[in-house]
Design a protein around this nucleic acid. Structure first.
Length: 561
RNA sequence: GGGGGUAUAGCUCAGCUGGAUAGAGCAACGGCCUUCUAAGCCGUAGGUCGAGGGUUCGAGUCCUUCUGCCCCCGCCA
C-alpha cells in the first residue's frame, strides 16, 4: 500500500518536473507514515515539506500542486492538505477492509515474509556456564534470544540457535572443588572451603547425587556418579552434567529450544585454538611482552592490546572466543547474532578485532550483537544482589514456578533490550492477574468465545460469505482495528530487522486494547446476518493476529481463561 | 580517568529510524455486568520529555557540553 502510494507521488513529482515547476535534479526519498489521528486520514506524506526549500515554494502551495498532479487511484478516496503542508490520504473503505480477507486466507502465515530469502542465520544466546542454575538475567537472554529466532524464522531466514559453554576452565575447576568439599561434609564457613568456591546450597544437591551414584541425562551429555570423593575428574564430569540438566529443565519449562550445544573444549580438541594462534602469528599481528603473547587488537579499533597466551602458558578466554566465531563463519552463517548481557560489552570489539586479524573475508562489523541491560530484582521493596558465589539470587525456575512461563517471558521480552529492567517479584507474583500478558491473552480468549457462542445460538459463520459483507465495518472502532491489523506485517518486519521483539509486545497491547474497546462498544452476535458475518470476520482476524504475535513471543494463546 | 547504556506521569515502561494536541499499565478518583468472558470498558486527574546550547519548516527523537544512575575497563570467563 505504501509502495503504491509512493509510486503515485513519484509520478506526480515527475509531472511537475516535466512542467518546469520543480527542479529536475532532485530525487527525494518519499516518506509515507501511518497517521496517529484518524482525522488525518490513513496515510500521510511530508514530501511537500521536505521539497519546499529546494523548490522555492511554500509547503502548502507545493502540496496543493502535488495533489493536483496526483494520478487517480481506486484505493484513495480523498486527499487533504493539513498543518504545515502534510498531504493526508484517506483510503477507500474497500481497500482498508481487504486486510480481513488477507488475514483469513493467510492464517498463521499472515505477517510472515520471505525477506530472509532462506539465508542462514545463527543466534547464540544464554550460553551460561554450567556452574549453577539459570538466573533472571539468563531468563532475559532466553526470552529475547528465542523471540529473535522466531522473528527471523517468520521473515524467511533459516535459523540455527546455539548455546555455547565452557566445560573445562577455571570456573569449572572451582565448581568441582566445591562439590568435592561438599562430598567431604564441608560447608562455606569451614576454613578448608575452596577460596573461590561456589557457596550455593545447590552444590550440596550435586554432591549428594554424586555420592548416591545417580545417573544424569542432560540434552548433550550423560554420566553416572562414581561416588568417589577423591576422583576430581569424575566429580567435574558429574557436576557439569548435573547442572546442564538443571539448565535444560529450566529452558524446557521456559519453552526455549536450542538446535546445538557447543563446547569450548571442542575447540581445543579439534586444534582450532592452536590453528587460530598460528594464523594470528603468521599474519604478524602478535608480539611477546612480559612473557605473554599479545594480539595487537588496537590495530582493529580496540582501546588496548589483549593477551592471548598467559605467561604461565594456557590461553585467555579471548582466544577460544575468536576461534569459536571463526568456526561459526566457516559453518556458513553469513549472519550471526550474539545475544548477551551488557556486562560482556567489552568482548564485542575484541572478538571482531580478532576476526579481522585473521585476515579472511569476514566483514568488519561481523557478528551482530544484541546486548540486554542488567535485570535488577526487587523483593520486599529492596534490591536482591545477584551473586553466584554467595549463592543468593533468584533463579529463573523460581519465577516460572511462581509467575508462570507466559508472564515471565512476556515481562522479560516486552521492554527494549537496551533498557534496564526491574523485575519486582512481589508485584509479578502477588498481582499476576494484572500482568499485561493476560490482557492480550484475554482478548484472544474473548474472540474464541464469540465463535463458541455463535454455535450455541444455532448460527454459523462462513468465512467466504462474510467477505462479501465487510463493507458493513464502518464504526470508528472498526476502522481503527482494520488499520491496526494492516500494520502488523510491517511491525514484524521491523522487529526482525532490528532484533527488537519488544515492538511485537507493544503492538499486541495496542491491538488488544482496541479489540476490547470495540467489543464493549458493539455487539458482534447481532440478529442481522450480514453485519454479524462482517464482525465475526473482523473478530477472527484479530484473533489470528494476536495468536501469530504471541507465537513470536513464545507466549501461549489460550482459547479460554 | 576511558568505553558502552540510560534519563519521558507518583511507580514500571512505550514512543514506529525528525512530523501534527507526547502514550499505555499500575497507583488515585468517578461511572458501566439481567445482554457475545468485568483478567474488560468509559471518564477525571497526573508532564518544562534530566539541564544548557546547536542543526531546520519542525526535535522526546539527530549533534554537543554538563549532571545523575547502571555495566565494563584481569595474563578471570
Amino acid at each position: 500500500m505504501k509502495e503504491q502510494l509512493s509510486q503515485l507521488i513519484q509520478q506526480a513529482l515527475d509531472t511537475l518536473v516535466a512542467a518546469g515547476e520543480l527542479p529536475g535534479d532532485s530525487r527525494p526519498e518519499i516518506n509515507i507514515d501511518r497517521t496517529r489521528d484518524p482525522s488525518h486520514g490513513d496515510l500521510a506524506s511530508n514530501i511537500a515539506l521536505t521539497l519546499a526549500r529546494s523548490a522555492g515554494k511554500k509547503p502548502r502551495d507545493l502540496a496543493a500542486m502535488i495533489c493536483a498532479a496526483l494520478p487517480e487511484a481506486p484505493f484513495i478516496s480523498k486527499t487533504e492538505i493539513a498543518g504545515p503542508g502534510f498531504i493526508n490520504f484517506f483510503l477507500s473503505s474497500g481497500s482498508s477492509q481487504a486486510v480481513v480477507q488477507r488475514i483469513l486466507e493467510q492464517g498463521g502465515q499472515y505477517g510472515c515474509s520471505d525477506a530472509g530469502g532462506g539465508r542462514r542465520v545463527q543466534v547464540e544466546f544464554v550460553s551460561a556456564n554450567p556452574t549453577g542454575p539459570l538466573h533472571v538475567g539468563h531468563g532475559r537472554g532466553a526470552a529475547v534470544g528465542d523471540s529473535i529466532c522466531r522473528l527471523l524464522a517468520a521473515t524467511g531466514w533459516s535459523v540455527a540457535s546455539e548455546f555455547y559453554y565452557n566445560d573445562a576452565g577455571a570456573q569449572i575447576s572451582n565448581l568441582a572443588l566445591s562439590v568435592q568439599a561438599r562430598c567431604r561434609g564441608l560447608g562455606p564457613e569451614d576454613p578448608e572451603w575452596p577460596e573461590d568456591g561456589y557457596r550455593g546450597d545447590y552444590i550440596q544437591d550435586v554432591a549428594s547425587a554424586y555420592l548416591a551414584g545417580e545417573r544424569i541425562d542432560a540434552e548433550d551429555r550423560h554420566v553416572a556418579g562414581l561416588g568417589d570423593p577423591d576422583d576430581l575428574d569424575a566429580i567435574r564430569e558429574f557436576a557439569v552434567a548435573y547442572l546442564r540438566r538443571e539448565q535444560d529443565l529450566d529452558l524446557k519449562a521456559f519453552a526455549v529450544h536450542f538446535d546445538q550445544y557447543f563446547l569450548e573444549s571442542s575447540l581445543y580438541d579439534s586444534g582450532e585454538v592452536e590453528a587460530t594462534v598460528a594464523r594470528l602469528i603468521a599474519n604478524g599481528h602478535t608480539y611477546e611482552q612480559d612473557g605473554a603473547l599479545w594480539l595487537r587488537t588496537t590495530a582493529f579499533g580496540d582501546d588496548k592490546d589483549r593477551v592471548m597466551r598467559k605467561r604461565e602458558g594456557g590461553y585467555t578466554y579471548f582466544l577460544p572466543d575468536v576461534a569459536y566465531h571463526f568456526n561459526k563463519w566457516q559453518r556458513g552463517f553469513e549472519r550471526v547474532i550474539n545475544e548477551q548481557g551488557a556486562d560482556h560489552h567489552s568482548t564485542v570489539t575484541r572478538v571482531r578485532a580478532g576476526l579481522q586479524a585473521l585476515e579472511t573475508a569476514i566483514p568488519e562489523g561481523w557478528p551482530d550483537y544484541v546486548l540486554h541491560q542488567m535485570v535488577t530484582v526487587m523483593r520486599d521493596g529492596s534490591e536482591v544482589k545477584l551473586s553466584k558465589r554467595a549463592g543468593s539470587y533468584v533463579t529463573l525456575r523460581d519465577l516460572i514456578d511462581e509467575v508462570g512461563c507466559d508472564a515471565t517471558r512476556y515481562f522479560l521480552v516486552a521492554r527494549a533490550p537496551s533498557s534496564q529492567l526491574t523485575f519486582d517479584i512481589d508485584l509479578a507474583m502477588s498481582q499476576s492477574n494484572d500482568n499485561p500478558v493476560y490482557y492480550i491473552q484475554y482478548a484472544h480468549a474473548r474472540a474464541c468465545s464469540m465463535q463458541r457462542k455463535l454455535a450455541e445460538q444455532g448460527w454459523d459463520w462462513v468465512p467466504q460469505r462474510s467477505l462479501a459483507a465487510l463493507e458493513r465495518l464502518q464504526e470508528d472502532h472498526e476502522k481503527a482495528l482494520l488499520k491496526r491489523l494492516d500494520q502488523y506485517p510491517e511491525v514484524v518486519a521491523g522487529a526482525a530487522a532490528a532484533s527488537e521483539p519488544h515492538t511485537i509486545a507493544n503492538y499486541l497491547r495496542e491491538l488488544a486494547g482496541e479489540f476490547h474497546s470495540w467489543y464493549n462498544a458493539h455487539k458482534v452476535l447481532v440478529e442481522e446476518q450480514e453485519l454479524r458475518d462482517a464482525r465475526l470476520a473482523l473478530g477472527e482476524a484479530v484473533r489470528q493476529v494476536i495468536a501469530n504475535g504471541l507465537q513470536l513471543l513464545g507466549v501461549s494463546a489460550p482459547e479460554t481463561m
